[in-house]
């Protein structure tokens, strides 16, 4: 009986030790996470690099020069103008084509078209061949 109770006591202490170790580890981990999250508390503001204004001014001047130095054909106004002309020509051609095909559909009925095809595909030579055969 004593042995059994001693065994139970031992098991209980083992479990308690395990829980305690786990708890400490968890606490340590939480503490570490908090430490990382608080690492930027009281951070100093980063200063802009030296001669920031001088470099900025140089860049602005370079950009302005770049726009003026652009060859005429690459200037945005010219490019946009050319694009507008191309779009206009395309739209004009598409519009004309669709209206022409509409006119064709409206102009004649199907019988007229069939007759037109028939007259075009009736070879005059058929008659000549026939005549030649008779002569033979």
């Amino acid at each position: 009986m004593d042995c059994r109770s001693n065994g139970l006591k031992f098991e209980k202490t083992k479990v308690l030790k395990y829980v305690h170790v786990k708890y400490i580890a968890m606490k340590n981990k939480d503490y570490h996470i908090e430490e990382i999250l608080n690492s930027i508390e009281g951070i100093r503001r980063a200063s802009a690099p030296e001669f920031f204004y001088t470099r900025l001014k140089a860049r602005m001047e370079k950009e302005v020069q770049g726009v003026y130095a652009m060859p005429g054909l690459l200037k945005p106004v010219f490019v946009l103008g050319m694009l507008a002309v191309v779009i206009f020509i395309n739209a004009f051609v598409i519009f004309n084509k669709t209206s022409a095909s509409d006119e064709l559909h409206l102009a004649g009925n199907d019988t007229d078209l069939i007759q037109l095809y028939a007259s075009e595909y009736t070879p005059a030579e058929i008659g000549n061949l026939y005549d030649l055969n008779i002569e033979k």
């Binding site: 999250l37 690492s39 100093r44 503001r45 200063s47």
Partner: peptide, 14 residues
């Protein structure tokens, strides 16, 4: 550059 030296490693992770 504004992080204290002893916190640099943690700040980098953050």
């Amino acid at each position: 550059p504004g992080v204290a030296l002893d916190r640099k490693e943690n700040a980098a992770r953050l």
